[in-house]
């Protein structure tokens, strides 16, 4: 993708800020999510909690199902490709969905390499546990980052760990003299140019969402106050009752409260 296309892809993620992206496995759920106010849906054959339970190999979802969901909603549709599986990504691009999640939730297809995302026009979101992973994915062409968390558990602790780690590393970088950046970048596996960019900005150079184990609206608000730009929810929620949290979102009890705001909301 050329620089212009990459900019447009980063900008679509900007328009999702402050929003909730929901996992859905069929048209009916996609419509409920849209009506509840989701800013995008993640079309999946099996949600991560089922993948964990069933075991086996988790692959890209059935293109027919993804196409049906795309037809049913007007909000952006995302779908997952296995890490390193560039042909699944080519198929998803051909389906003309809006975003690909190169996701650790599926069984990795390549244990060494991620997809070369610069070869695609469609945007990618990738998971990260720390600043190094985030910046390496951006260097490979990701237009949006999310925490990895621990999908399908309903336990937010890993997402919190990943967000806190990223924030800590960004703060360290922002405060250190520039001559220390080379060493810091080497130790933590940061692409140097991007490390300088993060130092200048005081945050990731693309939109950063929380994902992986968020189960309640309070979990989502926790991640927002930790400085995320938005959240992915789904399988953790489905573990106990998909409809109940959807109703909670719809009632807007949390969205109306002071708890729902990004970390910078009051600057």
């Amino acid at each position: 993708m050329d620089a212009k296309r990459y900019e447009l892809n980063v900008q679509l993620a900007q328009m999702l800020k402050g929003g909730v992206i929901m996992d859905v496995t069929n048209v009916e759920q996609a419509k409920i999510a849209e009506e509840a106010g989701a800013v995008a849906v993640m079309a999946l054959e099996r949600v991560p909690s089922d993948i964990r339970k069933d075991g086996g190999v988790a692959r890209m979802s059935d293109p027919g199902m993804i196409a049906e969901i795309k037809k049913a909603v007007s909000i952006p549709v995302m779908a997952k490709a296995r890490i390193g599986h560039f042909v699944e990504a080519q198929l998803l691009e051909a389906l003309r969905i809006d975003y690909i999640d190169e996701s650790e939730v599926l069984t990795p297809a390549d244990e060494e390499c991620h997809i070369d995302k610069t070869k695609f026009s469609i945007p990618f979101v990738c998971g990260a546990r720390n600043l190094g992973e985030a910046l390496r994915r951006i260097a490979e062409g990701a237009a949006m980052i999310r925490t990895k968390g621990e999908a399908g558990t309903g336990n937010v602790v890993e997402a919190v760990r990943h967000m806190r780690t990223m924030n800590r590393e960004i703060r360290q970088l922002a405060q250190m003299p520039v001559e220390e950046v080379t060493g810091f970048a080497k130790t933590n596996g940061l692409p140097y140019e991007l490390a300088l960019k993060v130092k200048e900005l005081g945050r990731l150079p693309v939109v950063n969402f929380a994902a992986g184990g968020l189960a309640t609206p309070a979990d989502a608000a926790l991640m927002m106050q930790l400085g995320c730009d938005g959240v992915f929810v789904g399988s953790g929620i489905r573990r106990w009752d998909w409809a109940r949290p959807c109703r909670a979102w719809k009632s807007g009890r949390f969205r109306r409260s002071r708890f729902w705001q990004s970390g910078d909301g009051n600057l």
């Binding site: 328009m15 402050g18 009506e35 106010g37 989701a38 800013v39 909000i75 807007g252 969205r255 109306r256």
Partner: peptide
């Protein structure tokens, strides 16, 4: 601002 119109409409109502 720009965003998702279905989400913004929903939030305008809720708030």
């Amino acid at each position: 601002p720009g965003g998702e119109s279905t989400c913004l409409a929903r939030l305008l109502e809720i708030f």
